[in-house]
Design a protein around this nucleic acid. Structure first.
Lengths: 121, 121
DNA sequence: TTAATATTCAACCAATAAGTTGAATTACTA
DNA sequence: TAGTAATTCAACTTATTGGTTGAATATTAA
């Protein structure tokens, strides 16, 4: 029931400027729903909904203290997101490396002797 | 008109497993729309739409060669995304560092000789 | 020229997202 | 106890998403 870590939810949660601003605020420390809502031009309810999205993505945790709900930042899903993105970049640069090696190999073949390739004419 | 780099679009584009799979494939090299669609259980049209979303996010580029459209991976928006995420983590750990320092300072006051500062009582 | 291939465009549908307003719940405070 | 504060719940609206099918547009091949 703990709405386990899920890249789809994490990235979707991050894909909204309001939610990113909320997270940014929370990465400086705990805050109440009302505090989080204050900077925004939307209703408290709207912010409450955004918070719920962040919770579903496990990016924020909630602790109740009387009538106040104290939200806090959880970095764990961010780690997962970065891991995925970095893996893509790694693949990409690996491929560029391989391509580069290939081109160099072609050079070694193409330059010394002549006339080996080309559409000629 | 080049649909400039935008974190919202980037993260929203990444928040879908089909699109991530497409990107993963493209990070190994160029491919046609049909090639990209082949592994999926959905229509070609659906994949075509996913590609359009990735293009809007500048995560893929398109080059036409006759009737074929050759798609390729562009890492730049990923860099931006990682930059944002890392910034949050940095804030977070900075705050934890500060909190830690604070707690240590309190320790120094509370345990040994006492009486150097603090709200006393 | 005709047929097949690669791709998009257009219209549609169901589900979800993002916001609203108003009412309900729960916990403090005077 | 009565009122107010902090928050969610419920219902509703509008826009977007992710998928479908069928037709249109180019380009290549027979």
């Amino acid at each position: 029931m703990t709405a386990q870590l899920n890249l789809d939810d994490t990235l979707a949660a991050l894909a909204d400027p309001t939610r990113r601003a909320i997270l940014q605020r929370l990465s400086e420390g705990e805050a109440r729903v009302t505090d989080l809502a204050q900077p925004f031009a939307m209703s408290l309810n709207a912010v409450s909904k955004h918070i719920r999205v962040l919770e579903r993505a496990c990016l924020v945790r909630r602790r109740r203290a009387g009538r106040e709900h104290l939200l806090s930042f959880n970095h764990q899903p961010l780690d997962e997101a970065v891991t995925w993105i970095e893996a893509q970049r790694a693949l990409w640069t690996a491929r560029l490396g391989a391509l580069d090696a290939l081109l160099q190999a072609e050079d070694r073949v193409a330059s010394p002797s002549a006339e080996t390739k080309g559409p000629a004419r």
